[in-house]
């Protein structure tokens, strides 16, 4: 199909109030049962934070505030230092249990989740903010204010020695934190796209 013809078709699709034929599923008319969403509804629901900081809200939080919040809302599941569990390890090495550790099998059997440490594996600090805001604390997700989430994010980064004690998390500083996981990260999908099948 020529470029002009394609533009013409596209114009019809966009302009027509009736079911029309679209790309890929040429035999399937666009049903048009969806209804428009107000921008205010999108803004309310759209909570995903991206690695470049897109969608991070206004607000800020200090390591010091985060420490108090952490003790109150997080330590019971994640441990006083974010390393003890039983819930996912937040800080520490990449979680490898040495094969010389005499209790290794027991540790793995008892706490398979602990082998993943957010601080060591996650490539972007923005994910700490995103996940804490949407899913934590486990018994009351989405109950934290943006400032509280910033403070907890600052404290988790501090527990990983990735920021200094005077660090203040906000939408400008979070994207600048260098996570050790980034240098190790690869994308299997990208690799597959570039090199064909596995």
């Amino acid at each position: 199909m020529g470029k002009t013809a394609a533009s013409f078709l596209l114009a019809i699709i966009l302009a027509s109030p009736w079911p029309v034929f679209a790309q890929n599923t040429e035999d399937t008319p666009v049903r048009g049962f969806g209804t428009p969403v107000a921008q205010s509804d999108i803004d309310r629901l759209s909570i995903t934070i991206f690695p470049d900081g897109r969608n991070l809200p206004e607000g800020r939080g200090t390591v010091r505030d985060g420490k108090a919040l952490y003790a109150d809302k997080c330590a019971a599941c994640h441990g006083a230092k974010g390393r003890e569990g039983p819930a996912s390890r937040l800080a520490g090495s990449d979680g490898f249990f040495s094969i010389w550790d005499p209790l290794r099998i027991l540790r793995i059997a008892n706490s398979p989740m602990l082998v993943n440490s957010a601080g060591a594996q996650w490539p972007y600090a923005t994910t700490l903010f995103d996940y804490t805001r949407r899913a934590m604390p486990h018994d009351a997700p989405k109950s934290l204010t943006n400032n509280e989430v910033y403070a907890l994010t600052a404290y988790m980064l501090f527990l990983n020695d990735l920021v200094k004690r005077n660090f203040i998390a906000d939408k400008g500083t979070l994207v600048k934190v260098e996570m050790p996981g980034l240098a190790k990260s690869t994308s299997a999908w990208e690799h597959e796209q570039n090199n064909g099948k596995h």
């Binding site: 996981g181 990260s185 690869t186």
Partner: peptide
């Protein structure tokens, strides 16, 4: 977005020290 699950839990640490995401 590098969500929690694709950053950690559902990524794979490889023997060469890399961590594979989006597998």
């Amino acid at each position: 977005a590098f969500t929690r699950d694709e950053s950690g839990l559902y990524s794979e640490p490889r023997s060469d020290g890399t961590i594979e995401h989006f597998t």
